[in-house]
Simulated assay, not measured.
Amino acid sequence: MLDKRQIRQEIKHRKQGITPDERERLSRQICRAIESLPGFERVVHLMLYHALPDEVDTRPLLSKWARDKQLYLPIVDGDDLIVAPYAEGAMKQGAFHIWEPTGTTAIDPARLEWIVVPGVAFDRQMNRLGRGKGFYDRLLQQTPARKIGICYGLQLVDEIPTEPHDMKMDLIVTENDIIYKNDEIWH
Rank of each mutant, 00 (worst) to 15 (best):
L2G: 01
I7D: 01
R8A: 01
E10D: 07
I11H: 05
K12W: 08
H13N: 10
R14N: 05
K15S: 02
T19V: 03
T19M: 04
P20I: 10
P20L: 02
R23L: 11
R23Q: 14
R28K: 07
R32F: 03
S36V: 03
G39S: 12
G39P: 06
V44D: 15
V44P: 05
H45M: 11
L46D: 02
L48Q: 10
D54Y: 06
T58M: 03
R59Q: 12
L61E: 01
K64V: 06
W65Y: 15
Q70R: 14
L73R: 13
D79M: 04
L81P: 08
L81S: 05
A84I: 05
A90V: 09
A90R: 12
M91H: 14
M91P: 13
K92S: 15
H97F: 14
I98S: 13
W99I: 02
W99P: 06
E100R: 14
P101K: 08
I107Y: 09
D108I: 01
P109A: 03
L112R: 07
V116A: 07
V117W: 12
V117H: 08
Q125F: 01
Q125C: 09
N127W: 01
G130P: 12
G130M: 08
G134L: 05
D137V: 08
D137Y: 04
R138I: 09
L140P: 11
Q142T: 12
P144R: 04
K147V: 00
G149P: 00
G149S: 01
I150N: 02
Q155G: 03
Q155C: 02
V157G: 11
E163R: 11
P164I: 04
M169R: 02
T174Q: 00
N176W: 06
I178K: 06
Y180H: 09
I185F: 02
W186T: 13
H187T: 12
